[in-house]
Design a protein around this nucleic acid. Structure first.
Lengths: 149, 149
DNA sequence: TTGCATCCGGTACCCAGGTACAGGCTTACC
DNA sequence: GGTAAGCCTGTACCTGGGTACCGGATGCAA
């Protein structure tokens, strides 16, 4: 249970509690992920207490595979009136992307396992029988956004 | 069936056949992935015919999740006398890495599915019951190289 | 031998996602 | 009120994997 709205956190406190670099806070501010916070008389940033939680959301969304631009947009969309099915649709799209990535990784893992099992000893001059390396043409599948795994 | 060893390929031919940019060839040369090729009298690069295959190996290794530095090192190791179990060990390490990435992606996918199923409508102010977003603390597992998924 | 495609080296730039540093002001605590 | 820690802005730099552009030299075919 966090106490409801303390008086504000300084940059260093937010950074430490959220586990990010101070510079990152200002970077996120520039990128539009964090709103410009209030300032002390002397010009120091004073963040609302829930900023730490917001940073948690941002980091989580990043882990979900969203880029910072996407996160910014999602946060913005969420703050505006029309929460809409936008997030839902984006999540669905992301799932497709992630499935492709997983598929690639699984294929890659399979090949690596073959490399290990076959006791390959060189990328270019492997002397092992049935060397799988010449057949490494996996992962060439097109991804929705054109990004390889 | 490729004719056995023509007299050498020019940059553009290698690039086209390997499906890479010409600049990429010079970039790889700088990075130590491609040996400095022979030169024509006028100073133009003349590549041995197997360069295209080598580029295929490089691209394959990249798809296997090796960085260019790692690929360079692997190629170098392979070219030296002691092929050793080095590639094998690296492949094993890569498999561990890839497993961690897959695990993260699967977890992420699960959460995204929950987001979709729960009909979340906002990252920060989701109004749906049992909203999974606050619990997006997945993917925090340490990876061998410290890289998040 | 002319003319156009290709290649040369060098340098600068691109993307994402940050991180570092300098020089100066503020805040907090004793 | 002194002093150290913390924060300010602005700018530059980092990693990784390339890509683009420039002015000039070459290669090759007609």
């Amino acid at each position: 249970m966090t106490p409801p709205e303390r008086f504000g956190l300084r940059t260093g406190e937010v950074a430490e509690q959220a586990g990010v670099n101070i510079q990152t806070l200002r970077y996120y501010e520039r990128r539009g992920l964090l709103a410009e916070p209030a300032r002390s008389n002397g010009g120091h940033r004073v963040y609302p207490a829930d900023t730490v939680a917001l940073l948690g959301v941002i980091k989580a969304a990043q882990r979900l595979g969203f880029t910072l631009d996407e996160v910014a947009e999602l946060l913005d969309t969420g703050r505006r009136r029309h929460p809409s099915a936008d997030l839902r649709q984006r999540a669905i799209d992301k799932i497709t992307e992630i499935d492709a990535k997983i598929a690639d990784l699984v294929a890659i893992r399979g090949t690596l396992t073959e490399v290990v099992d076959a006791r390959c000893d060189s990328l270019t001059n492997c002397t092992c029988a049935d060397c799988p390396i010449p057949f490494l043409t996996i992962g060439t599948t097109e991804h929705p956004d054109g990004a390889p795994a």
